[in-house]
Design a protein around this nucleic acid. Structure first.
Lengths: 145, 145
DNA sequence: CTGGATGCAAACTCTTTGCATGCAT
DNA sequence: ATGCATGCAAAGAGTTTGCATCCAG
C-alpha cells in the first residue's frame, strides 16, 4: 500500500497474474481522489459517469480487491449498506444513529495495548477501529420526527 | 436499564402505554439468559421453541424495542447479519474477518476523552465501541482455503 | 371496547453467483 | 491463444412494510 491505489493496483495485479482493466483503473482512481466514506452504490454511480457500462458486480469485486491491497477499509457499522473508507491511516468514526452520517474522529487509542490484549485471547489483530455512536449535531437539534 | 430485560420491559411498556405480550416477554427472557452475541434469526429460532408461532417481524420489532431500552446493543460489524449483544456494559469486540466469529475483549478505553473529542466535533456521543478486526486463533491456523 | 401488537406475505435493499462474452497479457 | 474479468440477469441474504386479525389493558 505505497503510493496511489491506481499505481499499486497495477503492480499488485502483475504480481498475482491479474489484469489491469479500465474498470479497475477507474475505480482505483476514484478511491485515490475520493471522499472519505462511500458505499458501493456511490462508487458505481460515480465511476459510471467516467466509464459508462461498468456493472455493480465489478464494483463489488474491485472494492474487495482494493480492500485486500489495503487501499480501502470497511467501516464497521450497525446497519445499512457497507461503507468503504478511503483513508487507511489509523483514525476513528462517529456514526449518527438517526441519519447514518459518518464522520472521522481525530483521537488516538493505544493500539499496541489493544493488539496485545487481543493477542492474549489468541486473536491475531490486524486493525483497531473505534466507533462512537450517537447523534450528529443536526439530528440532535432536529425535531423528534 | 435496571434489573432484567423482562422486568424493565413491563415497566417501560406501561409508562409508554405499550403492551406486555407473551412474544415480548419470551424474547426479553431469552435476552436475560442469553449468549452474548445473537442474530435476529437465532433469537427467532430459540424463541420459537418456547412460543411456537412468533414471527420474524415481531422479533425485529422487539429487538428494536429492547435496544431503545438499553437491554441489547448492536455490535458494529463490517458485513453479515446484524448482531445483537446482550451485554450492555462497556466492553469491546474482536471480529474474525475469515469466519465472522465475535468475541469480547476485556480492555478499557478512555471513554470520557473520546466522548469529549466527539463533542468537540459537535457530535453527541452515546456509546463508544471498539472493534478489533483480524483472525481468530482457528482461522489463523487454518489452511489458506 | 380500542388501539397497539401480531402473523403472514410480499416488497425491498444490498450483495453475490452463474454463465456467456470479451479483452489484457 | 488463454483464461481472467466483465456485464447481465437472476438468485440470495437480511430486513422492513402493509394489512387484516387479535388480544392486552
Amino acid at each position: 500500500m505505497t503510493g496511489t491505489a491506481e499505481a499499486s493496483l497495477a503492480l499488485a495485479l502483475h504480481l498475482r497474474g491479474g489484469r489491469v482493466t479500465p474498470q479497475r483503473r477507474a475505480i482505483a482512481r476514484l478511491i485515490d481522489e475520493a471522499q472519505m466514506h462511500v458505499t458501493a452504490e456511490e462508487i458505481y454511480s460515480q465511476v459510471s459517469e467516467r466509464l459508462p457500462g461498468v456493472s455493480i458486480p465489478t464494483v463489488y469485486a474491485t472494492l474487495e480487491l482494493l480492500e485486500e491491497l489495503g487501499h480501502v477499509a470497511r467501516v464497521p457499522t450497525s446497519s445499512g449498506p457497507a461503507l468503504f473508507d478511503t483513508r487507511t491511516d489509523e483514525h476513528h468514526h462517529m456514526i449518527c444513529r438517526a441519519c447514518g452520517h459518518v464522520a472521522d474522529l481525530m483521537a488516538s487509542v493505544d493500539r499496541e495495548r489493544l493488539v496485545s490484549a487481543a493477542g492474549a485471547h489468541g486473536f491475531h489483530a490486524e486493525q483497531v477501529q473505534l466507533v462512537v455512536q450517537g447523534l450528529c449535531d443536526e439530528c440532535a437539534a432536529a425535531p423528534v420526527s
